[in-house]
Design a protein around this nucleic acid. Structure first.
Length: 492
RNA sequence: GACUCAUUAGCUCAGUCGGCAGAGCACCUGACUUUUAAUCAGGGUGUCCGGAGUUCGAAUCUCCGAUGGGUCACCA
């Protein structure tokens, strides 16, 4: 609040006056440094049979007050949930009870008393000592409707978390999902590593980077758009199983499924290929759903997806044939591809080659149909600059994208380890860049040196962690799984 | 970036045809010793998102701007 004291509206001034009153009585809540909690709300509710009649101390935020005669009830919310406090004048004494009556919803309190059940059956704490531990100067949203304005919820997430238990639950689940991924991969002998976010060449994905400046070196840097090129350097260095879970940044649009900074998990495993990555993906997803949700059948927006069954596998060419009727096995030249695109209203640009057009067909006709877990395999080489070609057909590569709910959930390949081929692929990317593809990669010379030292055959995969959390928590927007999503600043 | 809808009290929302700014919750005063969105009596606490215009008069109509939601475009 920027308002000075004189400008505060009455509703705000009253709370400040109450605080001043406490301070004058030498009961400044902000002087208190700690409070001992013997039990959480949940422990008392779950363990009532053992705790009935026993003395406990609890602490949390006052969420509601009722029945203010010589006896009062309040709901106190702590980290685990809510517990009702029963506060009686006889037990507290006249002076303390008078102070308690001035407590506001939102204040943080500590209470001591005996666990019991009220006449209506509600497990409660019969309070004989209550202390204000922090005064709330701003009123919370109304108790019944809570806070629903999405703008306010995202900007003031602290209020959202107080008012909406399901929001807190979503973020608890997100934390559990990431913990479960770490535990699973660590159990397979993977090593978690951290690689630079500030880079001079942002490669490994097709995206426009954010740019910044490092004063000490007077150099322009970019924020990373993927983790790939550094993790592969580690494979070269003999770290055979590595992964990183970290933030990447892409200077692109923002909608219900995209935030400019998001969490990517990339993993590289030496001596395996994309088939190994498919097996790992299938096992990992199944494990996560079972661990976090307790079932392999997840429901997103009313649609059930079964992670328990073997995931479907289809090549990109087969998928395009299935959903658009166009068979790229019979298309051999760019002219033929363009003709097919024209006939099927697929828009393409001058720089697009045959493989790009196949991908455009895929995006237009196939993606939305891939609801159940599906591996789409064998992409065209033109859109896969870091991937090994298929031994029997150099127009395609050993790559798959994992789809669920029509969304791309993961992207994996048999990593290209032939440095001569890799240099040609970078060169082709630079030609695309020259022709106006702002998302094309450029040659990373240090990465090239690493490949020339020699990288074992390797399988690699990247997962979008935020989308994974959306699916597993049935969240409609990516902003619902980000504690503080990117928002346009209000202050100028 | 385009289109579209929204913005009124701390929160959730009404506000008719352009004519004194409204309700519920919260809050204040009082009553009430087992309440559950407690109840009863009284009290409205406001930059109607910001600016300009039309008008005797604008929360309401017009234009410009801000922020957000949705859809599309780009992407994961």
């Amino acid at each position: 609040m920027e308002n000075n004291e004189q400008n505060l509206s009455e509703i705000l001034q009253i709370r400040r006056d109450k605080l001043a009153e406490l301070q004058q009585m030498n009961k400044n809540p902000f002087d208190i440094t700690k409070y001992e909690q013997t039990h959480s709300s949940k422990q008392i509710l779950d363990g009532f049979d053992d705790l009935e009649g026993k003395r406990v101390s609890v602490a949390g935020r006052l969420m509601s007050k009722r029945g203010m005669g010589k006896v009062g009830f309040c709901d106190m919310q702590d980290n685990e949930g809510k517990i009702q406090l029963f506060v009686k004048k006889d037990l507290l004494g006249d002076d303390e009870y008078a102070l308690f009556k001035k407590y506001d919803i939102g204040d943080i309190v500590g209470a001591e008393g005996v666990v019991f059940r009220t006449q209506t059956g509600q497990v409660s704490v019969k309070v004989d000592k209550i202390t204000m531990l922090s005064k709330s100067l701003l009123p919370l949203p109304e108790k019944f409707h809570g806070m629903t304005d999405t703008d306010l919820r995202y900007r003031q997430r602290y209020i959202d978390l107080i008012m909406n238990a399901d929001v807190k639950d979503t973020f608890v689940k997100r934390s559990q999902i990431i913990s479960a991924i770490r535990a699973y991969l660590n159990g397979l002998g993977f090593l978690e590593v951290e690689t630079p976010m500030l880079v001079s060449n942002a490669g490994g994905a097709a995206a426009r980077p954010f740019e910044t400046h490092f004063n000490a070196l007077d150099e322009n840097f970019k924020l990373r758009i993927s983790l790939e090129l550094y993790l592969k350097r580690l494979i070269v260095g003999g770290m055979d199983r590595v992964y990183e879970i970290g933030r990447v940044f892409r200077n692109e649009g923002l909608d219900t499924r995209h935030n400019p900074e998001f969490t990517l998990m990339e993993l590289y495993q030496a001596y395996t290929d994309y088939h190994g990555m498919m097996e790992l993906t299938e096992n990992l997803y199944r494990h996560l759903a079972q661990t976090v949700l307790g079932t392999t059948k997840i429901v997103y927006n009313g649609i059930e997806m079964d992670l328990g069954k073997p995931f479907e596998r289809i090549t990109m060419v087969e998928a395009v044939k299935k959903y658009s009727g166009v068979d790229f096995n019979g298309i051999h030249t760019l002219d033929e591809a363009r003709k097919a695109a024209d006939e099927h209203k697929v828009e393409y640009e001058e720089r697009h080659k045959k493989g790009d057009i196949l991908n455009l067909f895929f995006e237009k006709y196939v993606e939305e149909h891939l609801i159940q877990p599906t591996f789409v395999m064998d992409h065209p080489v033109e859109i896969s600059p870091l991937t090994k070609k298929k031994p029997d057909n150099p127009e395609y590569v050993e790559r798959f994208e994992f789809f669920m709910n029509g969304w791309e959930m993961a992207n994996a390949y048999s990593e290209l380890n032939d440095p001569i081929d890799q240099r040609e692929r970078f060169k082709a990317q630079e030609e695309q860049l020259a022709q106006g593809d702002e998302e094309a990669n450029t040659t990373d010379e240090d990465f090239m040196r690493a490949l020339e030292i020699g990288m074992p055959p390797t399988g690699g995969i990247g997962f979008g962690i935020d989308r994974m959390c959306m699916l597993l928590t049935d969240s409609p927007a990516i902003r619902d799984v980000l504690l503080f999503p990117t928002m346009k600043p209000l202050d100028k």
